[in-house]
Write a protein that binds this DNA or RNA. Sequence first.
DNA 1: GCGAGTCTGTAACTGCGGTCACAGAGGCCG
DNA 2: CGGCCTCTGTGACCGCAGTTACAGACTCGC
Lengths: 225, 225
Amino acid sequence: MAASDDELAERLVALYPVLRCLSARALAELCQTASRVQLAAGAAVFDECQNCPGFPLILAGTIKVVKSTAAGREMLLYRVEPGDSCIITSSCLLGRSRYSARGIAELPLTLLVLPPPLFEQMIAEQPLFRDFVFHLFAERIAELMQLVEEVAFHRLDQRLAKLLLARGETVRATHQALADELGSVREIVSRLLKGLAGQGLVVLGREQISIVDREGLRQLADSGR
Amino acid sequence: MAASDDELAERLVALYPVLRCLSARALAELCQTASRVQLAAGAAVFDECQNCPGFPLILAGTIKVVKSTAAGREMLLYRVEPGDSCIITSSCLLGRSRYSARGIAELPLTLLVLPPPLFEQMIAEQPLFRDFVFHLFAERIAELMQLVEEVAFHRLDQRLAKLLLARGETVRATHQALADELGSVREIVSRLLKGLAGQGLVVLGREQISIVDREGLRQLADSGR
DNA sequence: GCGAGTCTGTAACTGCGGTCACAGAGGCCG
DNA sequence: CGGCCTCTGTGACCGCAGTTACAGACTCGC
């Protein structure tokens, strides 16, 4: 028990260096007070209009935060990874409002959920923790504003190019998955990818896109700004 | 001097009831420490990639926060009114990052700008003030997520209808101004307004749109969700 | 090896939103 | 009154994204 808590504390601090600001005692207490949640890949972490059970620290896996329509289309707002915190959750917690999007576990997910009183206490007493949370807020807001701009003003091929660039050398994903990130539909993504391949920017394979001309893609993504 | 500070304090507390959590002394000190800024209508309050001089409380006027393109198109992200705070500013301040949009005074604007150390002190010491700021964060984030959804999934006529509904009985604005809120262009707004008028939902006049069928507009705005 | 299910390609068509190029219409000011 | 500026109306045209409807390709399990 104590050993596993020690281990947990270590992993926590490795992912969230800011927690070093806590005393060893406080950290141990945190590990005991917080509840551990495990979810399978694909499970819903939260949904629109729910209330929020606490402040989640991500130990493993990722959450994708998504708006979706009745027609089955979907759009990625942002992704939450270990070391981040799910800002929408914090915002519910802090603002006492409700979720306004859905969160879905992309990989098997392990969370440590701080109960609200503990969270508020840490915000009150730990300037560094406060800074950490605020910094996440600031980042998300900037990202969301950027996203609005891109959706409003950029063509889909540019957004697709940017998405591919952000994913490294070879992207393993179905066209449907890419469409869901962009808020579009599969056929269009297929068509655009074929276009990119025709320009020699990528090479296509099953569930795989290999970038061959990174610079060209970047030019496309940045054209007309 | 003291009289004018008293007046200021009164106006402040009227607009920001949360400041009641301060002692009379602290409030007086705040009024003295903070700097007052006046800007003409149309003036830039901040721009992308600037750093942030402090935490603004709005005494009079409004700020529109906007993304704009090289081609001269513009898109309203949100509007900041007396009693609100400009969250993008707070996010810069708290997250030590930079603006990622432009802020423009819509009316003659009076700000009271709290220097960062004072702001941080209040965040640290005043739980109610902290709540107030967080609540604003939460609201903005939810609004931005909503905006992404609307831009990505809703037709322009629906978004226009919603915009008109949110503006009261008769809307006084040029088509260009409406286009700038929606991230579109004047001709399209004119065309769509003509369509709405044709359906008997609104009546058009110079720099003026009068809503005659509120319910019909609402149906249009909500159709296909 | 066969069939079900998933993933991809692709062609025809539609419609929304944007661009361009004007023409009036209403105000404001000298 | 005449000229200028802003605001609005409008028609022709274009291109992107979305829809529909398939057909083939690949994978996996039986």
